[in-house]
Simulated assay, not measured.
Amino acid sequence: MSEQAEVHSAQTLASGGIGRKPPKAGPTSSGRPTEALGTLTEKMGTGENAKNSIVWMTITWSFSIATAISFLFFSLVVCYKDFSYLESIKSVWSLFIPLITLALGYAFGKSK
Rank of each mutant, 00 (worst) to 15 (best):
M1K: 06
S2W: 03
E3R: 10
A5N: 00
Q11Y: 08
T12P: 01
T12Q: 13
T12I: 05
S15D: 09
I18H: 05
G19Y: 01
K21C: 08
K21Y: 04
P22Q: 04
K24H: 08
K24C: 02
K24T: 02
K24V: 06
K24Y: 02
G26A: 07
P27R: 04
T28A: 12
S29R: 02
S30V: 06
G31E: 03
R32C: 00
R32A: 05
P33A: 09
T34C: 04
T34F: 01
E35I: 03
A36L: 09
A36E: 11
L37Y: 04
L37R: 08
G38Q: 00
G38N: 12
T39H: 13
T39P: 05
E42H: 14
E42M: 14
M44W: 11
M44F: 15
G45S: 11
G47A: 08
G47W: 00
N49Q: 11
A50G: 02
K51N: 06
K51G: 01
T60K: 09
W61M: 13
W61A: 01
W61K: 03
S62T: 01
A66M: 03
A66K: 05
A66Q: 01
A66S: 14
A66Y: 07
A66D: 05
T67K: 04
T67P: 04
A68H: 07
S70F: 09
S70G: 08
F73G: 00
S75A: 14
L76W: 11
L76P: 01
V78L: 13
C79Q: 15
C79Y: 13
S84K: 14
L86Y: 00
S88I: 06
I89P: 03
K90N: 13
K90T: 10
V92Y: 10
V92N: 08
W93L: 10
S94V: 02
L95F: 15
P98S: 06
P98W: 06
T101C: 10
T101K: 08
L104E: 14
L104P: 09
G105T: 14
G105S: 12
F108W: 14
G109F: 11
G109M: 11
K110W: 03
